[in-house]
Amino acid sequence: MSIGLLGKKLGMTRVYDDKGRVSTATVIEAAGNRILQVKQADKDGYTAVQVGFGDQKPQRVSKGQLGHFAKTSSTPKKFVREFRLAAGEAAPESVDLPVTIFEVGQYVDVIGQSKGKGFQGVVKRFHFAGQPMTHGSMMHRRNGAIGNRSTPGRVWKNMGMPGHMGDERITVQNLRILQVREEDGVIIVSGAIPGAKGTNVIVRPSIKNKKPKVEVEAPAKKK
């Protein structure tokens, strides 16, 4: 697996391409990604690069962590994650990871923490149909029957029931990169990504759709 970027969801908008087609788009801020450490197989047991994003005040960081950041003469970072390297893949030489490591038309996966919905019933959580609101029905949004009788004599696994919804790690796969704007330090991907504005996200090259779109699309022309 190759290296991706860490970023922050800024919000959504729409983007027209040069052919006049419109896409829903999410803007991800990904400026200032920095490699903090390269994990090596002989020393750490696996190969990976540790990447940091988003400046943190030095007084908010423990002394041990400050020392770790100082090793690569980096400012303290808020969001630190690793990207595993494939066998034989070398870590990049530069410590800075610009947004231009992604190209327009490439497919990426975006990982983030979804918005928390609290304790929810089955209608919202699992799209159950519920029961009639009227006609003497005294049962409206309940889950109904959850199983059979003595065969199987238990409730099947993964039976939908009320509980906590949202606030979980979600990966959205195969989002196309619409624009890479180096001067703003942002990338624009098609479609929606998990979480609220300001959520930290991980953007990595797609693991299922590696080839860029056959028809290469240029970013929207600036006026």
């Binding site: 800024l10 919000g11 908008t13 983007v15 027209y16 803007v27 801020e29 704007r181 703003d184 942002v186 624009i188 504005k197 929207a220 600036k222 006026k223």
Partner: peptide, 13 residues
């Protein structure tokens, strides 16, 4: 609204 999103939108308006 984020200023970067404003910029992206104003370029297309």
């Amino acid at each position: 609204m984020s200023t970067i999103i404003d910029k992206i939108e104003s370029e297309q308006i």
